[in-house]
Design a protein around this nucleic acid. Structure first.
Lengths: 163, 163
DNA sequence: TTTCTTTTGTTATAGTATAACAAGAATTAA
DNA sequence: TTAATTCTTGTTATACTATAACAAAAGAAA
């Protein structure tokens, strides 16, 4: 059960997917990028849940649907989606997650549940400001931030407590 | 050149290594853990620089010195050192770094230079507090934090500016 | 010394990612 | 419309990262 519950309360996940795809189309058009079949489908498949998807899991799903099943296919699609800011890579899991705010410049900070593996993306300006400040103290010029927090989400905590 | 400069100004790196090893001996003794030859040497090799070392790089160095050269050897040593809190894994690089504060409970936050690959570990309580607070807002119970910031360190910035 | 536990050796394999070059499709220029 | 160009995909091979499983050896405890 804890594998299935959804971390975003009262949310219709189809809306997530639709919104993500719409944003993707828009961004690609604006930037003269081509959201080809395999790229579009990869994005949809990644968005099927709020759990990060591994490259080879994605490859298997694409292969089922008749796409080419060699690793470069999926890594190219992933590279494209990453570069376009449409997905994030969760470094601590070697897996990929739909970006919830692709239309805004932002940092992807993640809360990853150890139990159900759902991930929530958050974007808090005060943390970003703190990090910039701490880096500046070392005269360090920040370019990218990997912030991945793990633990127990609300639902799994409740489930575990009653178990 | 930028490959060689040292990020910690005015520091004698031998002191780092000695201090790290001494702390390691002490912690292992206290906890009834055995810092065997291969574990000790692995720790030293990781501490040879402030750059994260890959498992297979470490394996190669150990092999040169007559240690067994199969992967499990090095991963076991790494697992031990990680569990003992003597090293950290830099997730975004799949590489390992000596822990600068093994004797204190702390979170490993890293500043990673994209140019010279030196890493500075920092430990700021205000960031930790912010992260806890943000997690709590989602009713999320924090267990681990992966904070890896990349960019340009002071020396590389200076080198690049003059280039 | 026997037993128990921890550590290491060894072989095999699983999982993640990229290099290199050929072929095809879409876009642009002529 | 064709030719040239660029972008994208196909294909094969390989590199890099990590673990499973079981045997042997070493160290600690009884």
């Amino acid at each position: 059960m804890s594998e299935e519950h959804h971390p975003h309360s009262g949310h219709n996940h189809n809306d997530c997917i639709e919104a993500a795809l719409e944003t993707a189309e828009q961004l690609c058009t604006e930037q003269g990028q081509r959201l080809t079949k395999v790229r579009r489908r990869a994005l949809e498949l990644i968005w099927e849940s709020h759990r990060p998807l591994g490259a080879y899991q994605l490859l298997a799903k694409l292969a089922e649907e008749g796409f080419n099943s060699a690793p470069p296919t999926v890594y190219r699609a992933l590279d494209f989606l990453l570069a376009a800011g449409l997905i994030h890579k969760v470094e601590s899991m070697n897996a990929f997650l739909g970006c919830a705010h692709a239309d805004k410049v932002h940092k992807g900070y993640f809360l990853i549940c150890d139990e159900c593996h759902n991930v929530m993306e958050f974007d808090y300006q005060d943390i970003h400001a703190s990090l910039i400040a701490r880096a500046a103290e070392q005269d360090f010029e920040l370019r990218s931030e990997t912030i991945e927090l793990t633990g127990l989400c609300s639902a799994c905590k409740a489930a575990g407590a009653s178990a």
